[in-house]
Structures are given as C-alpha cells and as structure tokens.
C-alpha cells in the first residue's frame, strides 16, 4: 500500500511537471498575442523582473508551486449568494477566471456558451469565476454567462488562487484537493489539449489509488430515463403537472 502511494505521488509530480512545461509553451504563445494588444493585465510592469522568464507583463507565468485550492464563495450575476464546492468534491473542477472586458476572454465566453461544448471528462465541472461586483459589471456577467455553466463573481477567489491575469485556468482534483494544472491559454482548443492529458493522468492516478469513481454519471442516466418515462406519459418539459403547488 505504501509502495502504491509512493508510486502515485511520483506519477503526480511527473504530471505536474509535464503540464507546467506545456503551459509554459502556451504562455509564450500568449505573450506574442499580448504583444498584439490582446488580453487583460492585472500586473503592472514594476511587478515583473527582467531576470524572470521571458513572459510579458500580464501573461501568466507557469508555477510549479500553485496556491492551495479552496472552495469559492461569491455572488452570482442574479444577485444570489453562492458557495462552489471544490476541495473534497468527488470530481475535478476546471476554474476559468475570466473578465468581461478582455478580448481573449471573449473567445472563452463564446466557447463555453456552445451547447455542444465537450469537456474532456464526463465528471469534470466547469466553473467560470469573475472578479466581484466591485470590479466587474454584473450586467455583463449576466449577459455573457453561458446558460448551464456555474458563474461566480468573487475577487476573493482571484486572491486565493493567486490569479495574475485573465484568462487564467486552474484545474483541481476534488478528492485530493490538489491543483493538478494551471496557466493561461489563448483558445479553448489549446486548453482542451492540455486538459485531456491532465484529466487522463489524474483519472489514472485515481484508479490506481482505488478511489471509487463518481456515481454522478448514474444520476445523469437516471435523469434521462426519467425524462423518457415522462415524455412517454405525455408530460413534456414545461408541463404544468411538473410545477404543482408543493402544499397541495
């Protein structure tokens, strides 16, 4: 058992190094894009050093020691208060830190709004995080927020995850609470290729650890089955019978 744990830890370290290397190359691409005037920065030139990696101001620099993952508390664009569970959840979470004002982010807002959006793993949960209402436009977040995707406004989350720039992505393995990848990307396509590898590696590590897979997929199947039964009974989505008063 101890040998298994050591092996798992070694594999995770290798995965982190591989992902960091890939993100570094993508950061270079982003740097060039940023030179063309794309992207949004939260970093002033004085915060960067000429001796650091050749990454332009505002472009996320890969970190081998990411901030610890944490659950997110914030506000939704409808004004409600929300907590998004990440650490301890039985699924991985992809946090997409986006802004409504940066041009690079708009590609992701659009990509995430695609009804045919495919995430690289059925259990992977996508959560969009913007800064809080003191720094973001609620109406714009409401307008851009893709239906069906959790979107939370939280400057605290930006701080907790040490987000240097938008867009920025962090992937967290729920059961272990470990950040298994983070960095910037210019397009959803680029990010997908990184995610596929990271998720596959994380899933393999999970299987090796003997951790049970999420049973939520069964829930989705059950949902589909229930819908089929209801439709067969003539009860379509929006049918008044589905919205009866609970106290009757």
């Amino acid at each position: 058992m101890q040998a298994l744990l050591i092996l798992q830890s070694a594999v995770l370290v290798v995965v982190v190094i591989l992902v960091a290397g890939l993100l570094k190359s993508h950061a270079e691409i982003l740097r060039k894009l940023h030179d063309l005037g794309l992207g949004e920065t939260d970093i002033t030139p004085s915060e960067t050093s000429a001796t650091e990696l050749r990454v332009a101001a505002g472009i996320a620099e890969p970190r081998l020691d990411p901030n610890p993952a944490a659950d997110i508390t914030g506000m939704k664009a409808d004004g409600s208060a929300a907590v998004v569970g990440i650490v301890g959840a039985d699924h991985p979470t992809l946090l997409a830190f986006l802004s409504t004002s940066c041009s690079s982010c708009h590609r992701f807002w659009e990509a995430f709004a695609d009804p045919n959006l495919k995430l690289p793993h059925p259990d992977l949960r996508l959560v969009i995080v913007t800064k809080g209402p003191e720094a973001e436009s609620e109406s714009e977040v409401r307008r851009l927020g893709p239906p069906g995707v959790a979107t939370v406004m939280s400057s605290d989350a930006y701080e907790a995850y040490g987000v240097p720039v938008s867009p920025f992505f962090v992937m967290v393995d729920g059961p272990t609470g470990r950040t298994i990848g983070e960095g910037a990307s210019a397009t959803w396509g680029q990010l997908q290729s990184l995610l596929r590898q990271a998720v596959a590696d994380a899933t393999s590590a999970s299987k090796r650890s003997g951790r049970p897979a999420s049973n939520r997929a069964k829930g989705r199947e059950r949902s589909r089955d229930a819908d089929e039964v209801l439709i067969a009974a003539g009860i379509e989505p929006g049918d008044p019978a589905l919205f009866g008063r609970p106290d009757k």
């Binding site: 939704k76 409600s80 208060a81 929300a82 569970g85 650490v87 301890g88 039985d90």
Partner: peptide
Amino acid sequence: AGWDANIY
C-alpha cells in the same frame, strides 16, 4: 468543504 450552496 466540497459542498455547493446557493441562497437566492
């Protein structure tokens, strides 16, 4: 930790 919540 790990749970979701929403008050609206």
